[in-house]
Design a protein around this nucleic acid. Structure first.
Lengths: 240, 240
DNA sequence: CGGCGAGCTGAGAGACCGCTGAGAGCCGAT
DNA sequence: ATCGGCTCTCAGCGGTCTCTCAGCTCGCCG
């Protein structure tokens, strides 16, 4: 597990100002930030497992932060979650921690405390729990087992193929260029050419097709490749 | 996770009343509690690694909680630490988390919040605690006796073979690479080559086969070896 | 409509991976 | 000294995987 990549943070808050501020601030701290404005979309985005940490406001429209957290844990998603609340009642805090939260922040919090919390939580979780299992729709990528499944059906990828899919899924919702794939999968020496990437994406595609995942891995002509879901589009697209 | 044993808690606080109260309360919650009244003795106790969690007051005679924590981490002791303080300044909190604390409590805290924090932290750390007797389906590995059995039938492994199986079983459900096995079984000097790992996995396999455990130890080409069972797959795949 | 460049793919060579049998070296027990 | 068990290396074998090449398709632009 590469040590210091850019951590991916999901911010779930109903106030546009908060989302904007956190997005700007955390980006400046070297993190990739996605945002969700309501409970259901926060849950959908978090369920993909594509994030290293979730900042979850408790009072969200559609579905409370508590219930989002509860559902997440019920689905065996172990992404670290920091609960954020304007309340400071002890009951809230105890309930949140019992539900499997990894920390608690009370509004108004200082940005410095927030960053320290996020960093500490990321450090604690390390590479082990975070983004251990990724889910994009029916696609499941289990890193500890080097296994990829579509609708429960094992794809049987070779190591290279798995590495390619892993990178794409890890950056789900964003276009990944061929050069990026070359760098991360083939290494910085870049022994291989870009065509190798095309060939391997082709292999992965064939196996996805065979399992029934037709249009999942898309080509964005002139830019690279993209794996996404509507949920992620929403979170990553709306800048706040 | 493993069945709930009694967690061992170290309480470091200079006020006798607080120590008494926590001792009584946490014991009633099913935990074993030890207490330290000053920094140096807290450090000495924590350095033993015999605790599952440390409640560390920041203002301690002889040595501040910060420095205790710092020394602990410097000595590579990773026991979870909850910092406790009367202060609520943001700087304290940020510093503590940066030093490697696992949580923060501000006095006066309610007992309910404390217990929730402790539980949450234990739960988080819990997965990695050592286990003595491992069971993977019909396979039983008894570490203290260096014995492995399949369906009650002793396998008769040599020390090396046992060590290999032990690592694999300890990581059941995840792929273990040959280099990882080399490091953990053969030691960091890596006197042996990767082929030695292949040879020993072969030996272990033969003995497992002889006992009737055919497909247990699988090869994941290009990645390493994997021991798993349908039950484990199910647990990791949904319930966690 | 024609041309260009981007991307896709079938074929194939060679490298690489993992397994195995044989056996050398080492050690403790007899 | 001899034996047997354990550890580990070596060489060789299938078999798979990786990656290049060349030809092809397709979308885009003028």
């Amino acid at each position: 597990m590469t040590a210091e990549e850019r951590p991916r943070v999901l911010v779930a808050d109903d106030e546009l100002g908060v989302r904007r501020a956190l997005q700007r601030g955390l980006t400046a701290e070297g993190m990739d930030v996605a945002a969700a404005a309501d409970g259901p979309s926060a849950l959908r985005a978090a369920l993909t497992g594509a994030f290293d940490i979730v900042l979850l406001d408790i009072m969200l429209p559609g579905m409370s932060g508590y219930r989002v957290l509860e559902r997440l844990r019920a689905e065996a998603v172990r992404t670290p979650v920091l609960l954020v609340s304007a309340k400071d009642g002890e009951f809230d805090q105890a309930d949140g921690l019992d539900l499997g939260a990894d920390g608690y922040l009370v509004k108004p919090f200082s940005f410095r405390v927030l960053v320290a919390q996020v960093r500490a939580t990321l450090r604690r979780a390390g590479a082990e729990t975070a983004r251990h299992r990724l889910r994009i729709g029916e696609l499941e990528v289990e890193r500890s087992r080097k296994q990829a499944r579509w609708a429960g059906h094992e794809l049987g990828l070779s190591p290279r193929e798995f590495a390619v899919l892993d990178v794409l899924v890890g950056r789900a919702g964003a276009v990944v260029t061929k050069d990026e794939l070359l760098r991360t999968v083939w290494g910085d020496e870049q022994a291989a050419t870009r065509n190798a990437v095309e060939v391997y994406v082709g292999y992965v595609r064939r196996k996805l097709d065979a399992a029934g995942a037709g249009e999942l891995l898309r080509t964005v002509r002139g830019h690279g490749y993209l794996i996404t879901t509507p949920e992620l589009d929403a979170a990553l697209g709306s800048g706040g």
